[in-house]
Every structure is written in C-alpha cells, then in structure tokens.
C-alpha cells in the first residue's frame, strides 16, 4: 500500500480516537475521562471529513464535542462523586467483560477482512450538502419531521423528569 495523504491523516486520526477512548477506560479521575472522550469525538469528526461527509463532520463537532461532552461534564459536576473512581471489585464480572469484548473485537475484524463489499470507483461529486438537503426534504421528509417531534418530546420529557417532584 503506498503512503498517501489520506493514509497519513487516517493513521493520525485513528490513533487519536483510539487513544482517547483507551484513556477513558484507564483514567481514574472522572473529569479526565470526560475530556478524553471529547478528544475521541473530535477525531471521529476528522474521520468523517476523510470520508467526504463534511456536513456530518460539522454536526459531529457541534453536537458531540460541543453539546454532549459539556452536558456530561455538567452531569459529573452536579452529582456528588468520589474524585477518583475505584475499580469494580468483582473479578469474575471484570474478566468476563474483557473476554467477551475481546472475542467480539476479533470476530468483527476477521469478518470485515474476509467479506468483499468493496467498490473501487467512488464518485464523490454528488456528496455535497445540497444533495443531503434534497434527500431530507424529499425522500426522507416524514422521518425528518418525526425526528423533530422526537427532539421536542425528549426536551419536554427530560425537563419533567429532572424537575423536583411535587413542585408546581
């Protein structure tokens, strides 16, 4: 495989994403975990740029690194917690989790290497934001409206759930 710019960018971005996620597993301070996850989400936005999904990359930066990371940090700050979280003290549970995740990873990678679903000639001319807009307001009109209703319901529902009970 020749070394192209895309390969180098993919390499750096995937290393950043995986490092952020692995640090999230191994950090002990809860706030540090949140910040490393924000880095992972930012690197995934870069991966979207590599895949010609510019609009989705910008949405990823706005929604995940902007909104959800800050929301989670608020959630960490507003609930009392130990500064450093101790490990799960159930070795059987821990070992089974690691074994199951490892088996899943190996089988996923082997399956994706063995399968042939590659089409080489990729035409990325029509991957602009105009085409996404046409799809949203044409083919996917009803799911788009349903998504807006879902967001409204989630907004009202989370306010009602998080409100103090018995408060008028």
């Amino acid at each position: 495989m020749e070394i192209t710019g895309e390969f180098i960018a993919f390499f750096i971005l995937s290393i950043l994403a995986i490092c952020g996620a692995v640090f999230m597993i191994f950090f002990t301070n809860v706030v540090h975990m949140g910040v490393s996850m924000a880095f992972t989400f930012l690197s995934i936005a870069g991966i979207y740029f590599l895949l010609n999904a510019d609009f989705l990359a910008v949405i990823q930066i706005m929604v995940y690194t902007g909104a959800i990371s800050i929301l989670m940090l608020f959630g960490i700050m507003m609930t009392r917690h130990k500064e450093t979280e101790e490990k799960l003290n159930r070795p059987i549970h821990y070992g089974l989790s690691i074994a199951g995740a490892g088996v899943l990873l190996v089988s996923l990678v082997l399956l994706s290497r063995g399968a042939t679903f590659v089409s080489d000639a990729v035409d990325t001319k029509g991957y602009g934001i105009e085409k996404i807009g046409e799809l949203f307001f044409g083919t996917y009109m009803i799911p788009f409206e349903l998504a807006s209703i879902l967001l409204l319901v989630a907004l009202i529902g989370s306010i009602i759930i998080a409100k103090k009970e018995g408060q008028e």
Partner: peptide, 18 residues
Amino acid sequence: ILFVIGLMGVLTKRNAVI
C-alpha cells in the same frame, strides 16, 4: 475497536454518567 472500547466502558464502569 471503538465499539468494543465503548462496550468495555458500559460493562465495567461504576459512574453512571461515564
């Protein structure tokens, strides 16, 4: 790889926000 790391986090972390 990212999916499996997320699965590990779901299965082994104790802080519910994480």
